[in-house]
Design a binder for these strands. Structure first.
Lengths: 338, 338
DNA sequence: ACAGTGGCTGTTAGCGGTAACACTAACAGA
DNA sequence: TCTGTTAGTGTTACCGCTAACAGCCACTGT
């Protein structure tokens, strides 16, 4: 039981099953993989022996011999923000049944860590890689390009993919939201977001947003950044800060729904007229928002769809162009007037 | 670039690096693993060659030869409920620097799926396994017990572990919460939770809860279950349902914080006096709650600590007893009177 | 009777590394 | 001078499995 106890029996191998069932290792291998013709009685004998011995095949040896690994590396920045779990769901839903298995690596938005994670994953010679974002270290790009396996960069398409990209244009998403806000008549607009030098997608959304503001002769009235902590709470605090600094602000654009939700709760608690006196919008379209007292305007990031399409490319179920752009829909909710 | 393109160069091996640098494969291997004595000039030559070739070692071959795999399997029911990401954080924080790497498998609360995931993982011969819960299929238990590696079952300690267990007593947690509620004078208590036949920990909490109620001569006035959908929204809906069915209910015990938060928002929107007229409590102590208009009573599940301790056992940094119980603290928040 | 066929099983030779040991040169100490 | 030691490097034999091919045995058709 205890890990200090010596393993009573040496690890089981094909040879053990082969001896127990009286056939060659090769035949056992065939039975366990359902490959090639094996007579029914032999198959039974082998399965019986494997079962009673409690044999678990050694994929390491199998992979080395067959030069095939049923693993797909998935490299994402974080698990704790509701967006990647849904991408994973999409990936799994497609990979299930293909024999391929996702293996997740988390980078915490650190480029060096991403490089390490990619290196580690490639050293297991996976059948494909799915990686969030288009920005990577030169070394990481080089490794991926040389790996000789399908690579899918997801979430974003504003850039040049190594092999394939599936995602949305965050720049366009930011622009669209700005246009909707301007069209609704808001003029004093503030931005509230994460202080993440390496969250390139949030950065691109903001760029697109400001671009559209500029085109309308507007600029951001205020901006506020945070890092760490409870996003919902930070949303409140930042909103309070912006409103006290700039009482005439009439729109708050949040870089994600979670802080947006915090801001919304704050505004409602303050008795502010939403969306009359002040409008709000977030980004992502997380399910969470459905339960809020008022529905926050947002834009879904097509997370499920992105996961599915990426997995389809890896599984060879889809031949697609280099870039596959998805188009998020603007959900006006109840926090933009009009 | 495209996956259909034939790999121009065959995969690089140690031999390529060895030839490029003019030393034996063994020496290259030593350099790349920092093992054994290699002269500085040789080391440089080798590293140089490896770098320019873009060599990525093949861990499959390495693992087979050395009989050592730096992987730790982590089997959890779900990624999307805020609790496991934090456990993962704890695991990673300890594993980082040990050379061990976590590999996550998700079971969606399905025992058969769990069995499959465990089988797949064991077939990679990991150095250890961390698995949520104490309830598994017989086959899964047998496989794990025979694997000859440290096994840590986490989250729960109400049961018999295969090897090690680190967690809290959910039964006790339920009991404690009930006692606090009763002590505060609430009498008409309802339960609202997930309809998950295989969420054994939620089930145990409820058992402990009802046990303590019974001891005080009380029983649940009502109960309501849900499955799927936005937890926050479900919390609202279920709360509305319970309150309309049972207007005199004075306490709502939720099986998790997310639906509790939904319920809280609903009660506040209805203008109910919380915690005077009605009290609420959840479970988990998720960070999210910090941003709510009022702080929901809850009990933290020691998630970070559990992850850390489990990883320490696997990493051999801690010799511990079979069961390691952690004690969650009751956080009364603002939704239990007194 | 014969080669031809197809179903079933075994044999051989690796896959790409590493453990364990063997070897060599250089130098120290007796 | 000789042996012992040590740092640095190479050789050999696998790790546990599978691809490829080589049998072998009915059984078929002619």
């Amino acid at each position: 039981m205890s890990r200090t106890a010596p393993d009573p029996r040496p690890t089981l191998t094909l040879r053990d099953v082969s001896e127990a069932s009286g056939v060659s290792e090769m035949t056992v291998s065939r039975v366990l993989r359902n490959r090639g013709d094996v007579s029914a009685p032999t198959r039974e004998k082998v399965l019986e022996a494997a079962r009673t011995l409690g044999y678990v095949p050694n994929k390491i040896a199998g992979a080395l011999a067959s030069q095939r690994v049923n693993l797909v590396g998935v490299v994402i920045p974080s698990l704790s923000n509701m967006v990647f779990p849904e991408v994973m769901t999409g990936i799994s839903s497609v990979l299930d049944g293909t024999g391929l298995q996702p293996v997740v690596g988390v980078t915490n938005y650190l480029p060096d860590r991403e490089e390490t994670v990619i290196y580690e994953m490639l050293s297991w010679r996976p059948s494909g890689m799915i990686i969030a974002g288009l920005e990577h270290t030169d070394a990481a790009r080089a490794m991926l390009a040389r790996a000789g396996i399908p690579i899918v960069e997801i979430m974003d398409i504003d850039g040049t993919p190594i092999d394939h990209a599936v995602g949305i244009s965050h720049r366009r998403a930011g622009r669209q939201m700005a246009e909707a806000i301007i069209a609704a008549g808001y003029r004093n607009i503030a931005f509230l977001g994460t202080q993440m030098p390496n969250d390139f997608r949030a950065k691109k959304r903001l760029e697109g947003f400001e671009e559209a503001l500029a085109k309308a002769g507007l600029g951001l009235v205020d901006r506020e950044y945070y890092s760490g902590g409870s996003a919902l709470l930070k949303g409140r605090e930042m909103t309070a800060a912006v409103l006290s600094r700039n009482p005439d602000v009439d729109f708050l654009y949040y870089s994600n729904d979670m802080i947006g939700a915090g801001g919304l709760l704050y505004c409602l608690a303050q008795g502010l007229d939403v969306p009359g006196r002040i409008g709000l919008a977030g980004f992502n379209g997380v399910e969470l928002l459905d339960g809020l007292p008022r529905k926050l305007a947002t834009m879904d990031a097509c997370r499920l769809e992105i996961g599915k399409k990426a997995a389809e490319i890896i599984a060879g179920k889809a031949t697609r162009g280099e870039k596959e752009e998805l188009f998020p829909t603007l959900q006006r909710g109840d926090t933009i007037r009009g």
